[in-house]
């Protein structure tokens, strides 16, 4: 598999691996049937429902998947760290792929689900603080990953 140096770097030394005790939100995307699964834990500060004020203060992930999936999760976690929720909601899969200096075409769809998984965690956070209405507006993980 031809991966960029950046992909290999994040694959070999993934950033922000793990889980958070008492997270403010948990998001999962993918499933083991497709061969890629990601789970993100986030902490949000300040605990606000103002998407432009609340920021991801801490982020951790775990991934079952190929080299690309691990690199995507790691890169997406770095990109989301410290950003406001509204900034993360606007992030796209292409942003992650670009930051990794590209992904092989076949990996663009299935493995590139880091952003969606983090957005799922944001949805979870918004639900926990009672803003189902806002949670409903966040795209998150598609039901059919293929």
């Amino acid at each position: 598999m031809q991966y960029s140096r950046k992909v290999m770097d994040h694959f070999m030394n993934p950033r922000n691996v793990g889980e958070i005790e008492n997270p403010d939100g948990i998001g999962t995307c993918g499933n083991p049937v497709c061969g890629d699964l990601m789970t993100f834990h986030i902490k949000v500060e300040p605990q606000s429902d103002d998407l432009n004020a609340a920021r991801i203060s801490q982020i951790r992930f775990k991934t079952f998947g190929c080299g690309a999936a691990i690199a995507v999760a790691s890169m997406a976690s770095e990109m989301a760290q410290g950003k406001t929720l509204s900034e993360v909601i606007q992030m796209s899969r292409d942003d992650v792929a670009k930051s990794l200096d590209g992904l092989p075409p076949i990996k663009m769809h299935c493995s590139n689900i880091g952003v969606q998984a983090i957005q799922e965690a944001i949805k979870d956070y918004l639900k926990r603080i009672g803003r189902q209405d806002l949670a409903g507006q966040v795209k998150g993980c598609p039901k059919e990953p293929h």
Binding site: M1, Y3, F64, C66, G67, A69
Partner: peptide
């Protein structure tokens, strides 16, 4: 179990 094949192959 719990691990994907390509990531093992790469390593």
């Amino acid at each position: 179990e719990y691990v994907e094949g390509e990531s093992m192959l790469l390593k």
